[in-house]
């Protein structure tokens, strides 16, 4: 499971993991913007960015090969559009699509693989993202696994009776989705009941946010400046 793996990675310990989520979000955004605005394939620049991300992956003690392959999930789509670009006589664009999408994907993966989602959401909260949305995301993430397990249990049950998953007819599939929906609904009420029983009054409590240290600020500033400077110096 991809998200169980990322969740495990995000709870490792390293200098990168210990950085404040706000600092990491800002650094990642800097990298993303710089990458997104690259228009010409400049080998030096791509190499510098790749090296920067690589250093962070190593410093975060993340498995290098699996990170590199994990970021490659964007490549099929990028390749498809890349082929179209080459066919329409624009190989530069094809290369840029591949480079930009891969570097961006690696940046995003590095961010979530070195920051537990709850802390990341806390960081986004401090950066002004709507709290309500973040809370919905938190619940979504928490119950992702639970509901997927229910769905696969239902699929197994259906398959053991029908002999095969593929024999499920359209209507039966809809019935399964309906039952899953009803169960999700029931679960949501049960969760709400458990929350109320423990004193929930409509506001999600949060820990007092961890303070942004000087080292975090220096990291964020240095990362963003390095990224932007490289982008503008290597043309």
């Amino acid at each position: 499971m991809r998200h169980a793996r990322i969740d495990r990675w995000s709870r490792l310990d390293s200098p990168v993991h210990r950085l404040h989520p706000v600092a990491k979000v800002l650094a990642a955004l800097g990298m993303l913007v710089a990458v997104a605005t690259m228009t010409k394939p400049v080998l030096h620049l791509v190499a510098v960015y790749f090296a920067m991300l690589g250093v962070c992956v190593l410093a975060a003690r993340l498995p290098v090969v699996r990170m590199l392959t994990g970021a490659a999930v964007v490549l099929p789509f990028a390749c498809a559009i890349g082929v179209v670009s080459i066919l329409s006589g624009d190989p530069n664009r094809a290369i840029m699509l591949l480079v930009r999408s891969y570097l961006s994907s690696l940046t995003a993966l590095l961010l979530v693989a070195s920051t537990p989602l709850s802390e990341l959401l806390g960081g986004l909260d401090r950066l002004g993202a709507p709290a309500f949305l973040l809370q919905v995301m938190q619940f979504l993430y928490r119950y992702l696994m639970v509901l997927r397990e229910e769905a696969s249990a239902m699929r197994d049950a259906a398959a053991s009776r029908a002999g095969s998953v593929r024999i499920l007819e359209f209507k039966k599939a809809a019935g399964a989705a309906g039952v899953l929906f009803a169960r999700a609904h029931t679960r949501a009420s049960a969760i709400h009941r458990a929350m109320v029983a423990r004193g929930f009054d409509g506001r999600m409590p949060t820990f007092r946010p961890t303070p942004l240290l000087l080292s975090d600020a220096i990291f964020a500033a240095a990362a963003v400046c390095a990224v932007v400077a490289a982008r503008l110096a290597l043309k």
């Binding site: 993430y141 509901l147 809809a174 999700a184 609904h185 969760i191």
Partner: peptide, 20 residues
């Protein structure tokens, strides 16, 4: 809040159901 989050998780889970 829990309802909306769980409904989001439902959509993820429902994508495991194949509609022939």
């Amino acid at each position: 809040i829990p309802l909306m989050g769980v409904m989001g998780a439902f959509i993820f889970a429902a994508q495991m159901i194949n509609f022939p």
